[in-house]
């Protein structure tokens, strides 16, 4: 066995993963909190007002990182799913399944903040703008993965089915994006794009990047927490859990 696979298998052993994730989770939450507090402070109190959109633009500090994360998590979910399907690594299956609700939450946040931003900008809560529509489709794709997973009783079978669906989705994702863009340019003229022009002063840009990094730590922390709980639930009859309980009681 090559060293990479050895590492994966070692990290994938439930007891070791449980221990390692337990050490990592507090740090991830802490880094997320620090970055978010700083980023939000900068975003709402320090960054200058946009000359075109006024104060309403500030919602991009939530909207844009959430939209980025929803996309990134879908791709990661498919990668974890592929690893789980190909090498039958349980922890990868668990990561894929645990990613779905987090990604769906980010997609929903992006949709809601997009609508809120739309009200002052477009005068209505919903416009069939290309990005919002793509975001909506992505949200539906998440719903599909989560729906399939919850419909199958046997946990490992459910995880593998959901992983496969995520893989099919990830192949189609670029095609969906491209076709929605095309559809949008056909049916309506250009609208004001969220995020505005490409040139942003640093005082606006840096908080955005900080928030983008913060959400990644959030994902890491939430993913590990979910995966840990799922693992514990699945293995509740196994020896290592009993041993762990005994150790904790001492």
């Amino acid at each position: 066995m090559n060293p990479v696979m050895k590492f994966i298998h070692k990290t994938g052993s439930p007891a070791y993963f449980y221990w390692l994730s337990g050490r990592m989770i507090p740090w991830l939450w802490a880094i997320f909190a620090v970055l978010t507090i700083w980023g939000m402070y900068q975003a709402f109190f320090v960054a200058p007002t946009d000359y075109q959109q006024g104060e309403s633009y500030r919602i991009i500090y939530i909207h844009v990182p959430a939209a980025w994360m929803s996309m990134m998590i879908y791709i990661l979910m498919a990668i974890f799913g592929a690893i789980g399907l190909i090498w039958r690594i349980r922890i990868a299956e668990i990561f894929a399944v645990s990613s779905a609700p987090i990604g769906a939450a980010f997609a929903l946040i992006a949709l809601i903040t997009g609508s809120i931003w739309g009200k002052p900008t477009w005068g209505t809560y919903w416009v069939w703008d290309a990005r919002l529509t793509s975001q909506l489709v992505l949200f539906f794709l998440y719903l599909g993965v989560m729906g399939l997973h919850s419909a199958i009783d046997e946990p490992r079978k459910a995880a593998r089915a959901a992983a496969l669906l995520a893989l099919v989705g990830v192949v189609n994702l670029p095609i969906i994006h491209f076709s929605v863009d095309w559809w949008n340019t056909l049916h309506q003229g250009t609208t004001v794009k969220i995020g505005g022009g490409s040139k942003m002063p640093n005082s606006m840009l840096i908080p955005l990047l900080v928030m983008a990094i913060a959400t990644k730590f959030y994902y890491g922390a939430a993913l590990l927490t979910r995966a840990r709980n799922r693992l514990l639930d699945q293995d509740r009859r196994r020896g290592w859990v009993a041993k762990k309980i005994k150790e904790d009681q001492l």
């Binding site: 489709v137 539906f140 794709l141 719903l143 599909g144 729906g147 399939l148 419909a151 669906l165 099919v168 989705g169 189609n172 095609i175 969906i176 491209f178 076709s179 929605v180 095309w182 559809w183």
Partner: peptide, 17 residues
């Protein structure tokens, strides 16, 4: 019902094109 939820988003490109 689940089938519809799974495949409708994937069929959007066909519909659009």
């Amino acid at each position: 019902q689940l089938l519809a939820l799974l495949i409708f988003p994937l069929l959007i490109p066909v519909l659009i094109l």
